[in-house]
Amino acid sequence: MAKKANIKKDKVKKIVIDKSKSIIDAPSGMFSDKINEPFAHEMIVSKDRSENLTPKQRKRKWKSMANYFSANSLWMLMYCTGCCAIELPQAMTSRYDMERLGMGPMATPRQADILLITGYLSLKTLRRLIYTYEQMSEPKYVVGFGPCTLNGGIYHDSHAVINQLDQYVPIDLYIAGCMPKPEAVMNGFQDLIDLIEVGEATGWKDYHARYEWYKQNQKEALGEVMIHDEFHE
């Protein structure tokens, strides 16, 4: 009993907050106990260093904080394409419970952060997917499920579906398996969260940077990205 109390005391000592400092100067223990991670390292600010921060360093610090918070509040757009989607209900419901990772379903692309592309995409779907992706507000992340999004999978020689999704929209993470089991899906979500935390899920920045290239590819496969059907006329 006595031993336990000692350990606790140690920890408490580390997390003493100097209230005269702004919130970014708070010690790392407040936000994360994974001190060895690069992100957490950023957050450790000693009294001396914080006084000598250049504007650039200050900005970086704010950014790492923003990454931390967006990684812990993710809204997933409920838009499913291929058969991989059948594993999402398990991931969402009580058995695997996606919400314990801080992820929730969202019905509209305008308020969603994550676009899950669950399998093959026909040209007709790809058009609507590009509409959807461009409507989402930034930062936004795309996860590709299964080999169908990677190289066409078992539909690699079909006239109807595209082969390589990252030619048309940027992908941050692929999840393996045809279809990926819920464990793999959850694992993938955890990986995505880690990527966002360290600021490496930068697909949406790539979409800005190479916009012309993406548009060119889209045009080559689709002819025209604009949708002409009964509902859009």
Partner: peptide, 15 residues
């Protein structure tokens, strides 16, 4: 007489 694979090879970028 439509060749699905040839169409796919022609139209979609392969990894």
């Amino acid at each position: 007489d439509f060749d699905s694979r040839a169409y796919s090879d022609r139209k979609y970028v392969k990894r």
